[in-house]
Design a protein around this nucleic acid. Structure first.
Lengths: 213, 213
DNA sequence: ACCTGAACACCGTTCAAGT
DNA sequence: ACCTGAACACCGTTCAAGT
């Protein structure tokens, strides 16, 4: 669901087609194998020359950010839908639940949030808008009195990033561990005393298994 | 303080000296600028040829893991000292406090824990021993009844990694934010209801500042 | 205008030759 | 045994020539 920027020049039909092909090929390869797939392989997979790729995206980073910004906007859109849910607290934590599922499917999005990619202007801009959605979900959740009101969206995302890293390691070993760790985030943000957690503790064996798989 | 592995062959004096030089140069450069400084620059800074570096460390990853393992062992040693502290709960959270300080000083350690470096056997082994120390600190803290007893050391590290990422972004903008986020981790691990946090919410402006600096 | 393979500067790694 | 600069295969990026 990529929205074309309003000030973007009209491209010739074949150029537009090539641009899309590169974007699609890159998105597929990045999702599968992360951000360090070579630009040569992307161009080949898109059926264009390497130089054509660089005509559309000045550098590899711009290609990455174009995709990541799309993904962030998708996530933000989902969050806006959840703003109309009945239970605001459930809506907030279901949002985080779905978000960690996205990250698991899309290594590109995961790496872009976890690394120092916020130095990229386009990504930081999309991140800011996304943060606004988290803020609204959080504000509604606070009104119930169940969520502590001295935290902001950035605090939520800080905790969330830990879960994302954990998820990328343990999701294939035992998916319940993700739920457990989201429960710990919920505990951190909750007004009331400790409640039981889903799942089991991750063990050393789990680390070993996730490293081999 | 690196302990020599018992099964390691004796090196000729000059070889040993070169090995140390490479290790020191790499540690300094990695700490300053992260893990992607070139192996050529490391060799030059150590005053040896590139091939000499590869004689001592079969690949760049081995050089990195040698340094990271040392750092993890240092951190574990510090944790063992804190096992004798009077207040076990304070000891646990002071340990995390100091640990995040180490990460901030040493970009190599930070990257090695946050990325998929646990696939490296040597690092994973050191990580396992380190986890044992966290487990002991945690066990003592649980005995007081203040820390929930359904969490394990891996759960603690999951939350901690989020703080490390936050710290690497915000430490230079407002160091208090680290304390705040450690307070949130403490809240997640605590039996009792929400307590006030240190510091202030990180803002969008903070993200921007940290990206530019 | 847009396309492309060839060329460039760089990286981690290996090798052949030196002591 | 250990050292080394030169060579290799690769990467992201640029360029000169084609349509």
């Amino acid at each position: 669901m990529s929205a074309m920027a309003p000030d973007e020049k009209r491209l010739r039909a074949d150029a537009e087609r090539n641009r899309r092909r590169v974007l699609d090929a890159a998105a597929a390869l990045f999702s599968e194998r992360g951000l360090d797939v070579g630009v040569g392989e992307i161009a080949e997979s898109a059926g264009v020359g390497r130089a054509t790729l660089f005509r559309n995206f000045a550098c590899k980073e711009d290609l990455i950010s174009a995709i990541v910004v799309d993904r962030m906007n998708d996530a933000g859109a989902r969050g806006r839908v959840l703003l109309d849910a009945e239970d605001p607290v459930e809506a907030l934590f279901q949002f985080l639940d779905e978000l960690v599922g996205r990250q698991q499917l899309d290594r590109a999005l995961f790496e872009a949030v976890s690394d120092a990619w916020l130095a990229n202007d386009a990504i930081r801009e999309a991140h800011a808008e996304f943060l606004g959605v988290v803020d609204q979900l959080l504000a509604r959740a606070k009104e119930t009195g169940e969520v502590r009101d001295d935290v902001g969206p950035m605090d939520v995302l800080m905790l969330f990033k830990g879960v994302c890293e954990s998820a990328s390691a343990f999701a294939h070993v035992d998916p319940e561990i993700i739920g457990r760790h989201l429960d710990l985030v919920r505990a951190a943000l909750s007004m009331s005393a400790a409640k039981p957690l889903r799942g089991r503790e991750p063990s050393l064996r789990d680390v070993e298994l996730s490293a081999r798989g």
